[in-house]
Amino acid sequence: MPETVLVTGGTGYVAGWCVVELLRRGHRVRTTVRGHGREQAVRDAVAGEVEPGGRLEFAVADLTADDGWAAAVEGVDRVLHVASPLGGSGGPEALIAPARDGALRVLRAAAAAGVRRVVMTSAANTASPSSYAEEGVTDETLWTDPDDPTLIPYRRSKTLAERAAWDFMAGYDGPTELTTILPGAVFGPILATDTIGSVGIVQRMLTGAMSGVPRIGLEVVDVRDVADIHLRAMTAPEAAGERFLATGEFLWMRDMARVLRAELGEQASRVATRQVPDVAVRLAARFRDPSLRDITPALGRRNRHSTAKARRLLGWQPRPAREAVVDCARSLLAHGAV
């Protein structure tokens, strides 16, 4: 039966597709924005895929403040907590504190309102070996060690936020249930050009901003499949109290570049397929481009994640990684983002 669902962070890449899929399936949707000025951007993005009619409404709330969350969850049946902090200056805590505290704000408000279930977006790297050198396949039973000093702030923030959510539920005695979704590298079509998340990798390839590709492998999952697993986890009785990995096929970035060249022809003429040696990436990160420091631990990483649980309990079936990459590129081109 159609329900009223709150989606946090409606301007975001994954959140936007969650809004679209909920509307397609007949639900009423309320989504949070950080200011009323962002409402029209969400409406415009969604309208390219589905006509919302009067079933889309907005609430103003921010992960960094308590204001607005009680009103945001009022009358809501379920919550998809997809929003993530933007980070910025201030060191690692600038990312960690908003992620952790924001998750707790959403959970507390949802529990107080008697929401039936909260589905929270985490990340596959919260269920990964701390050492990138380890190989093999891991599942949801593994937790990344947040105290590992080599973790980049993003991995630590996602791990601590999800841990805080489960710790909250451990001490909670009420009707609200929690499920967490752990996506891999999210690609696929965009709804708008202002918030594209990880899609920026494909954008940089198409524009020629990457003169070569590092030896980094990604578990590519389509944004439409990420939205789908959120909706499945939202209602499936088996999903209550569970974590679900939502990763796709493993592709080296060089393979992604080759797929783009093969499928898009002249439109991908600026895509570089030359692989940059690991030592060159490390030297550049140390002396020329500090922004590369966060990716150097992932050079050559081969650890993969199992999605057997999501397939078995939710019937989830992601599309091929190559389809996600090509559809992503075509969408960027169609939106004039290249």
Rank of each mutant, 00 (worst) to 15 (best):
M169E: 06
E39L: 11
V73F: 06
R302K: 15
P98N: 06
V29N: 01
L142R: 15
R288L: 15
V271P: 09
T247L: 11
R254N: 08
L56D: 10
M256H: 01
T32S: 13
G37H: 11
L260G: 08
G102D: 13
M169P: 03
R286M: 09
E49S: 14
T32M: 10
H27W: 08
A334G: 07
P183S: 08
S211A: 13
T193H: 10
E74M: 01
R204C: 00
A165S: 13
A284T: 07
P320K: 10
T180N: 01
E135T: 15
L333S: 09
H230G: 02
A192Y: 06
L218R: 11
G248V: 05
P189S: 12
T141W: 03
V186Y: 07
R163E: 02
S131A: 14
R322W: 07
V7K: 12
W17I: 07
D77A: 15
L283R: 11
R322Q: 15
R270A: 12
G26D: 09
R108G: 12
R55W: 03
I229W: 06
H36G: 13
T273G: 08
M205E: 02
H335F: 12
Q275G: 08
M120R: 11
I295C: 06
T235L: 04
D66C: 05
G114P: 08
R304Y: 06
E49N: 03
R28H: 14
D145M: 04
E57A: 15
D289N: 13
A94N: 10
P175N: 02
Y172A: 00
R322S: 10
T31I: 09
L63C: 07
V115Q: 03
P98H: 11
R258K: 14
T8Y: 08
R78F: 05
R330P: 04
V325H: 02
P183L: 11
D147C: 05
L6I: 09
L142W: 04
E263V: 05
A240C: 04
V29D: 03
Q275S: 11
A310N: 05
D145S: 06
R117E: 01
A111P: 06
D77I: 01
S211P: 03
I201N: 05
E242G: 03
G10W: 11
L142Q: 02
V119E: 00
L251W: 09
V338K: 14
Q203L: 10
A321W: 01
H305W: 15
G48L: 12
A308P: 00
R38W: 00
R274V: 13
G68V: 06
Q203G: 11
G88N: 08
G197L: 01
S84Q: 02
R243L: 04
G54P: 01
V118L: 03
E39G: 11
D167A: 14
G171T: 00
A268R: 14
T180R: 00
P2I: 01
R78Q: 09
A285K: 08
L95V: 12
T247R: 02
T179D: 00
T31W: 11
K158T: 07
